[in-house]
Design a protein around this nucleic acid. Structure first.
Lengths: 352, 352
DNA sequence: CGTTCGGATGTAAACGATTACATTTTTCAC
DNA sequence: GTGAAAAATGTAATCGTTTACATCCGAACG
């Protein structure tokens, strides 16, 4: 039905080899001949068959991307970073989501055999780390996944440092009872952020208090519920650090509903710095994560592995975070200082 | 390097045909033999080569997805719907973004030749509709794209109805000067929502006023700027309908900064009903769009085309929207009525 | 004019699977 | 035990490319 290289060859009265040469500008073809072939190809709507090509060259020009079932800005940004970088290098991306257990991932990898040249794998669940030892027979780069001791390239977010910076910032503002709304249980990023939180407290000589550590799940609803339960405590925290912005937004909502003023009574900090953080009321302080860069860097490493297949050293890169201070942590807003002549209530509401 | 079907056949002392049969359970193979083959395959880490398989069967079990360069919840949800549905039917998805012009899309389609069985194409830019007439030689389903008169299957959002419902709701609340913050110029969804806005005004016997129609671009910043400029008018609107939630959120931020109370002084409505709408202050009324369903439906239609290649009739489905009323349009919040005993100021802030 | 050289093109063997058809083995009724 | 039918397995063509190697042809040289 669709034209093949043979059709083009026949129509242009040349051999398939010549046609192939024109499309891969591998060897010299007489300009006149090349022109004729291109014309015929265009009129026949010929496009080389990817499958056949990859069969013989054993290169697919495609990168497999295996992601957990995550939603929202993060996913979107990540794919964007991956796609742009991959395409710049002439690669496509084959995306698959919702892989949970080890067997499911193995199945996915299996199904990608012969369709991709390498794999980008994000598997933040800590239990899944056994999966690291699944030899896939393909270059792999792990994204934001536990990679303790495994022999895999990886890129991760500086969760620990980012969280520690945020909490240290809160401490420097005088807060002493600082709560955390944790990320999803078993999630690697969540665990690291918790570690950063604890480290900051410890560095400041404060004791960690389990009642200040609430479970969360990275959703607005989770943050909302956690904040409510924190407000019910006798000794309320004076600051809440949510392990991501969605939960921070849920928390803000709970505080507002309980008529607790932010940041006067309780300061709130998030993580990720999604675009919306800036537009919250009050604007949300957060830890900026360059998500697209994360994807881009993962692709770069993977392509390096694919091309220089000769063993290079293990790469384990981390993209660094940046503390973005806005009004929700009570500091004067760095981005847009509130007009001087305003009463207290207005100052609180000024945004963004 | 990687085991092929031949390796398995040799190792299991059978022919490649038998191995193939085991993996496709096409014909009966003696259980004993099958077991041995599976064992050998497992020990050799054999997985069939997708490229080779698709070459002979001329089916790739893959769907191509071509998207414009869009960010955020929408994209994420859409891919999710597509991926889940596709995988349930045993298909993979090959995703590509950032295609702008007609030539770029053609190039992308070309590159997908032999890698996909069909195409999901989203190209909301109105100019791009010429592109509809590019014969790609593959089944195609358009998503949220202008498809006037073209012979393509498509799925779209009921933008017109959704927008009209929202504006009608505002009118029913007594608003007479209702502004709109438009979506990106040249965008099909944006144009339809504008049409719905105008239709609602007309139906109510109100005149449309160009000064009430502001340009936007679907971003928070755009909504923020548009709201500011609307506030600068002598005859301020009493309600603002933003063509998506991001812009509505930007607008809320601008209103808050200008100390304009929502919904008392100005009501605000959005479109999309992203999860965050619920957590805004005040909670944002919006038009719920089942984005994942949109993707799912597109996949269903495409698969139908792929399998029943025998011509079926043109399908042009639309997913319906639903008005979600929250506090930003001033009606008593359906979801969580504010506690009775509260002063005016608190009532405004109650959330979500 | 016969070599030789090099550029342009053709020939045919892969690549790794599927599958129609051929062949072998098993089963079973008589 | 024999033969036929049924079941299991093997053989080889095929899909659409790429590419090493062979071939062809004209130009340049002695």
């Amino acid at each position: 039905m669709m034209a093949t290289i043979k059709d083009v060859a026949r129509e242009a009265s040349v051999s398939v080899a010549t046609v192939s040469r024109v499309f891969n500008d591998a060897a010299v073809v007489r300009p006149e001949t090349a022109r004729r072939i291109r014309e015929v190809a265009a009129s026949l709507r010929y496009a080389p068959h990817g499958g056949a090509r990859s069969l013989i060259t054993s290169r697919t020009q495609t990168l497999g991307v295996l992601l957990p079932d995550l939603y929202g800005e993060f996913f979107s940004e990540l794919i964007h970073g991956i796609d742009v970088t991959a395409r710049r290098e002439g690669y496509h991306i084959l995306v698959s989501r919702s892989w949970e257990g080890r067997t499911e991932i193995e199945e996915a990898v299996r199904a990608m055999r012969g369709r991709v040249d390498g794999l980008l794998l994000m598997s933040p669940h800590i239990d899944a780390d056994s999966m690291l030892h699944v030899p896939v027979g393909l270059p792999v780069v792990m994204i934001c996944s536990p990679s303790k001791g495994a022999e895999v390239d990886s890129v991760i977010i500086q969760n620990f440092t980012g969280a520690r910076d945020m909490v240290t910032h809160l401490i420097s503002l005088g807060h002493r009872r600082i709560a955390i709304v944790k990320g999803a249980a078993g999630n690697h990023d969540a665990a690291e952020r918790l570690r950063g939180y604890r480290a900051a407290l410890k560095d400041a000589g404060l004791t960690t208090d389990k009642s200040m550590e609430r479970d969360g799940d990275f959703t607005e609803a989770g943050g909302y519920a956690a904040a409510q339960s924190l407000l019910a405590l006798e000794m309320r925290p004076t600051a809440i650090f949510a392990a991501n912005d969605s939960m921070a937004i849920g928390a803000l909502s709970a505080l507002r509903e309980a008529d607790v003023r932010v940041p006067e009574e309780v300061a709130v900090g998030g993580f990720d710095d999604i675009p919306l953080a800036h537009y919250m009321d009050p604007p949300l302080s957060s830890v900026k994560v360059p998500i697209a860069d994360l994807g881009a860097k993962a692709v770069e490493i993977l392509l390096e592995r694919i091309t220089n297949k000769a063993g290079h050293t293990l790469r384990r890169e981390r993209v660094s975070t940046e503390l973005v201070i806005r009004r929700s942590t009570g500091a004067p807003c760095a981005e847009r200082p509130p007009p001087a002549a305003r009463g207290a209530r207005e100052a609180v509401k000024a945004a963004p």
